[in-house]
């Protein structure tokens, strides 16, 4: 029964590809900002002010001051920021790629995670205090909670898997991704489905807006590895916590105001609601991860 069901899915896979391949629209051209030149490296550097909140007890909010972006698109291979991929099926409307990227969860446990390359040297200075980490709130809270500094170090994970990009129209884009860690860290999956829509509007010339919404899904293994509490972390059994799979919905708004050919003003605000399986962990104090950033970008 299971086998026939699997065969049924495989049977419809080529049809799915044909469906996507028929949804063609304008090809990539130089003036389309959703397109990248093939065989060229692109760099940009963003300077500004912003913050990514850390949902963990005792976790430092991550300041966003300097954000480098780097990308390279070959005929099939691509490298963009912390992701490396190979597109093995590509039409104007749909791309299927093998992709590998650094898992973000350890960012909240370790400030010097590879994801946090944009944290400048002042980031570990005394100016940064753990957000919401005042002693009185600890004393007033009867629920078991544990500080990130009081648990064992989590390892960073490298994930790999498949990503499908469906370019629904020139403005709309759907990303579907399923990954598994490849460095024997949490031994589980994670995935996401993300829809984004570009538009110009609000009566502001030279301004592009992008609204993104999606869900991050984390398998039980991943939630348990990062947010579970066991005897490796503490001897206090009241803190023990077994993670379950979680779904985190998120929404993001991003805008770019073009100042000239090299400079643009950028703004990002993002909010991600943690699934109950994560927010119930004694490690977690905030149910929402918020990001806000305003800066200027220089495109090299």
């Amino acid at each position: 029964m299971e086998k026939s069901s699997k065969n049924l899915h495989l049977k419809y896979l080529p049809l799915l590809f044909i469906f996507f391949s028929q949804l063609t629209f304008a090809q990539c051209i130089a003036t389309n900002e959703q397109c990248a030149p093939v065989d060229e490296w692109e760099f940009s550097l963003t300077v500004g002010a912003g913050m990514l909140t850390n949902p963990l007890h005792g976790g430092n909010n991550i300041p966003l001051l300097l954000i480098p972006t780097i990308s390279y698109y070959g005929e099939n291979i691509f490298f963009e920021n912390n992701a490396l991929g190979y597109s093995f099926y590509e039409t104007n409307a749909f791309t299927l790629s093998a992709i590998s990227l650094i898992n973000r969860e350890n960012s909240f446990f370790s400030l010097w995670h590879p994801n946090n390359v944009f944290v400048p040297s002042i980031a570990n200075g005394s100016a940064l205090s753990p957000s919401g980490d005042d002693e009185s709130s600890h004393l007033d809270t009867p629920a078991p909670e544990i500080d990130v500094d009081d648990v064992a170090n989590r390892k960073w994970a490298l994930d790999a898997g498949l990503q499908g990009n469906w370019f629904i129209s020139e403005q709309s884009h759907l990303v579907m991704r399923i990954l598994h860690d490849v460095n024997d860290t949490y031994n589980g999956f994670n995935g996401k489905i993300e829809f984004s829509h570009h538009f110009t509007g609000f009566g502001m010339p030279n301004t592009q807006w992008k609204i993104t919404t999606g869900i991050n899904w984390l398998s039980q293994q991943q939630v348990d590895f990062y947010y579970g509490i066991g005897e490796n972390d503490t001897k206090n059994k009241s803190h023990y916590y077994q993670g379950k799979s979680a779904v985190n919905p998120y929404i993001k708004i991003h805008s770019n105001y073009k100042l000239n050919d090299d400079w643009r003003l950028t703004f990002t605000a993002r909010s991600e609601i943690l699934g109950a399986a994560i927010s119930d962990s004694p490690l977690v104090k905030d149910k929402v991860i918020k990001t806000i950033f305003l800066g200027v970008v220089y495109d090299y």
């Binding site: 051209i29 990002t268 993002r270």
Partner: peptide
């Protein structure tokens, strides 16, 4: 010889 292809939007994991 310059060709173009669609960006696959791999933002930094944190975003």
């Amino acid at each position: 010889s310059k060709k173009y292809r669609r960006r696959l939007r791999a933002d930094w994991s944190l975003f």
